[in-house]
Amino acid sequence: MRVLIQVPTRIPAYKYGGTNRVAWCLGKELVKKGHEVLFLAPSGSSSDFAEVIEYDPSKGLEDQIPSGVDIIHLNHEFEHWPETPFIFTQHGNFNHYPLPLNTVFVSQRHAERHGSDSYVYNGLDWDDYGSVDLNGRRSFFHFLGNAAWRIKNVKGAIDVVRHTRQERLEVLGGHRVNFRMGFRLTLSPRVGFHGMVDDHAKIKFLRQSKGLIFPVRWDEPFGLAVIESLYFGCPVFGTPYGALPELVRSDVGVLSTSRSELTTAIEQSEDFSPLRCHEYARDEFNSELMAQRYLKRYEMILNGQTLNHVEPAMIGGHTRQFLEWNK
């Protein structure tokens, strides 16, 4: 099968990289399975396992599809969808109109919020992450995500740690002074800020962390930070919103809307097995499983079937900007 994967940001991912990281892992896995993969990606992209076609925003999408492509895998919304058979993965929450019949979401909850039952969990190529030391010394907790997004609730993560006796938080993806959040200044010496870290720095922190603190205040579509943390043996302490109840089982973390409950939970983080967290992420959220699931859907589309009976659309819109977070 000849598959064209469109990505909205440069590949390979260097720092944050959500959608492009998943698309990269999918492409690599499809090549391993004997398929030909091409990427349609922004200027500056490169790949050592697939041809990269530079996307030209001044041209229409259809004009940039090479001949002989069996199916296009889109990861970004377009005003005009192509005539060539395609599948579209909706990675975010911010669509305001019906989506194509062949839309896939990234969790069951994400799909349900759009009136759909079509979803494929994200998976990562764990070989890209190097070795995992599950017996090493762990001395802090971490927050991983874009702290400038208030819905990610880094303030809540900081409050959880500040109410412990002596735990420390390392914020990966934010700064001590943040004007975008209405001038937030964090003075606590028990909180460190590291900005948007690259993969090398991120992995170094995850190897030494006791757990991820992730009290998001929106319906998280999936949460790569969750599975990356689990892979390195870090239990997850977050809120029960979006996909988190699907990803965070009781044996790998605690979900609550209460700061005090999460504070108590992280002080008992040693009750969780790093090995159990690691094995769960490795076995359930890998790129091979993701590729198998997408291949089934590619075949359905090429056989003339659709993935949804009606065009998916956000049910009720975004009625609440911030979901509940209690002290």
Results as ranks from 00 to 15, higher is better:
residue 279 E to H: 03
residue 2 R to C: 09
residue 251 D to N: 13
residue 59 K to N: 07
residue 80 H to S: 15
residue 98 P to G: 11
residue 95 N to T: 07
residue 159 D to R: 12
residue 85 P to K: 06
residue 220 E to V: 08
residue 196 M to P: 09
residue 186 T to F: 10
residue 86 F to T: 01
residue 245 P to T: 00
residue 232 F to G: 09
residue 76 H to A: 11
residue 75 N to C: 08
residue 179 F to Y: 12
residue 268 Q to M: 00
residue 124 L to K: 08
residue 164 T to M: 01
residue 310 V to L: 15
residue 70 D to Q: 03
residue 233 G to A: 04
residue 29 E to L: 10
residue 128 D to E: 15
residue 92 G to V: 10
residue 310 V to P: 01
residue 123 G to D: 02
residue 92 G to Y: 08
residue 191 V to Y: 02
residue 203 I to V: 11
residue 106 V to K: 02
residue 181 M to L: 03
residue 190 R to H: 11
residue 233 G to V: 01
residue 34 G to D: 12
residue 130 G to D: 14
residue 287 S to K: 08
residue 306 T to W: 10
residue 10 R to M: 13
residue 248 V to H: 07
residue 159 D to N: 11
residue 221 P to Y: 08
residue 278 H to G: 11
residue 13 A to Q: 05
residue 220 E to Y: 11
residue 225 A to F: 03
residue 172 L to H: 09
residue 133 D to I: 09
residue 44 G to S: 06
residue 107 S to E: 03
residue 29 E to H: 10
residue 284 E to M: 03
residue 220 E to F: 05
residue 91 H to N: 07
residue 187 L to N: 07
residue 3 V to W: 03
residue 271 D to A: 04
residue 154 V to T: 12
residue 107 S to I: 04
residue 229 S to P: 13
residue 62 E to W: 00
residue 177 V to T: 09
residue 247 L to A: 07
residue 65 I to K: 02
residue 33 K to F: 14
residue 46 S to Q: 01
residue 26 L to M: 15
residue 215 P to F: 08
residue 322 F to M: 15
residue 308 N to M: 00
residue 24 W to Y: 13
residue 186 T to G: 07
residue 278 H to R: 08
residue 267 E to I: 08
residue 12 P to D: 10
residue 195 G to I: 04
residue 102 N to W: 01
residue 326 N to E: 15
residue 160 V to W: 02
residue 127 D to A: 13
residue 246 E to T: 13
residue 242 G to P: 05
residue 253 G to C: 11
residue 41 A to Q: 07
residue 225 A to P: 14
residue 43 S to T: 14
residue 143 F to Q: 02
residue 290 M to Y: 13
residue 9 T to K: 06
residue 129 Y to N: 06
residue 321 Q to C: 04
residue 84 T to Q: 07
residue 325 W to T: 12
residue 159 D to C: 01
residue 199 D to E: 10
residue 27 G to Q: 10
residue 105 F to C: 06
residue 265 A to G: 09
residue 14 Y to N: 04
residue 228 E to G: 08
residue 5 I to C: 14
residue 244 L to K: 03
residue 93 N to W: 07
residue 88 F to N: 06
residue 250 S to R: 09
residue 130 G to Y: 07
residue 327 K to G: 06
residue 142 H to Q: 14
residue 105 F to G: 03
residue 46 S to W: 00
